[in-house]
């Protein structure tokens, strides 16, 4: 069963009809091929026009779509010889942050991702992609490991944010995030970050302060969730759609603000309609971003990365 979002209702209805007709023609041997073709085309047109002008809030919903490919789908599709590594060497292994060694298109790399999980059981196991300090400390450890062996780092970010919990605060959530950002910025190797779903605030930037930051077309990246922003500034969480619009959290907005480097086009109707195509497109974009960085030495890379961030935010939307 495909999961449809609220604004996808008209598409769901058309696709439902097509499905019904197909079953009828199979059962009764009635030839209604023409009608099926007509309705299929209509559904496609509807899908195309809907997805061509998604609002910021609709994109937020697509970015959080339960069937959207998750970090582990990108690792499975893009990384061979994937060898997960565990633990922060101090307290625990945080399953919200997955990562390890592997090969990307033949090249040995370190991969990291925030993993939300894809069914109830895995969602609970991965804490819905909300990391605790040990997750960020694991990330830092793996980035430093990559640096020691000259391996590029690829990160896949999909998190609503760092876990807001008593234990997380007690173990220094803020410090863990700060150190992880620092590890990204200090890495003597290329670091390519891809926002594949939700880029939720500090919990996302902790793994995304890279040389190149890529974003899927319907991913969102924001300093606060639209709901949180609406609750604070509008004093009404129901104003989330307005907050999403105001926050300028879409890939296109962030590219125009020069806060990210590239937008990766998604399959028609979003990455969840064709996960394999989405994973492939991300692979190509990561390869394109990584290639020119491989020639740079550590000193140049670091200086370039610092300049990139120091230059940031002088751009304004007109």
């Amino acid at each position: 069963m495909r999961h449809f979002l609220d604004f996808e209702k008209p598409i769901a209805e058309l696709e439902g009809k097509v499905e019904e007709l197909r079953k009828m023609s199979e059962a009764d041997g009635i030839n209604i091929a023409e009608e099926v073709v007509r309705l299929t085309e209509k559904a496609d047109r509807q899908l195309r026009s809907t997805y061509a002008r998604l609002s910021a809030w609709q994109k937020t919903q697509v970015a959080r779509h339960p069937d959207r490919p998750k970090a582990k789908d990108y690792l499975a599709g893009l990384i061979t010889e994937y060898t997960p590594l565990a633990g922060d060497r101090a307290f625990a292994d945080d399953a919200a942050v997955v990562g390890g060694l592997g090969r990307f298109r033949g090249r040995s790399v370190v991969v990291l991702g925030t993993e939300k999980g894809s069914d109830t059981e895995s969602r609970v196991a991965h804490n819905f992609g909300m990391a605790r300090p040990e997750g960020y400390r694991k990330a830092r450890r793996l980035i430093e490991l990559a640096g020691r062996f000259g391996l590029p780092v690829l990160t896949f970010v999909d998190t609503s944010g760092a876990f807001p919990g008593i234990d997380a605060e007690a173990r220094g959530q803020a410090e863990a995030i700060a150190r992880s950002i620092e590890a990204c910025l200090e890495a003597p190797v290329p670091l390519i970050a891809t926002i594949i779903g939700e880029g939720g605030s500090g919990g996302a930037i902790a793994l995304a302060a890279g040389d190149a930051v890529l974003m899927l077309e319907h991913a969102v990246y924001s300093v606060i969730s639209p709901e949180g922003c609406a609750a604070i500034l509008w004093k009404d969480a129901a104003q989330a759609p307005a907050a999403a619009e105001a926050l300028k959290l879409t890939a296109e907005d962030l590219r125009r603000l020069k806060l990210i480097d590239a937008v990766i086009a998604e399959p028609l109707g979003g990455a969840h309609r064709d996960p394999a195509a989405a994973v492939g497109a991300v692979g190509d974009a990561v390869q394109a971003a990584l290639q020119p960085l491989l020639a740079l030495d550590a000193v140049t890379l670091k200086a370039r990365r610092r300049d990139k961030y120091l230059e940031m935010g002088r751009e304004a939307l007109s």
Binding site: S201, G202, I205, A209, V223, A246, L249, L257, Y309, G313
Partner: peptide, 8 residues
Amino acid sequence: GAISLMQM
């Protein structure tokens, strides 16, 4: 928005 996030 994200500009404030980039201050981190």
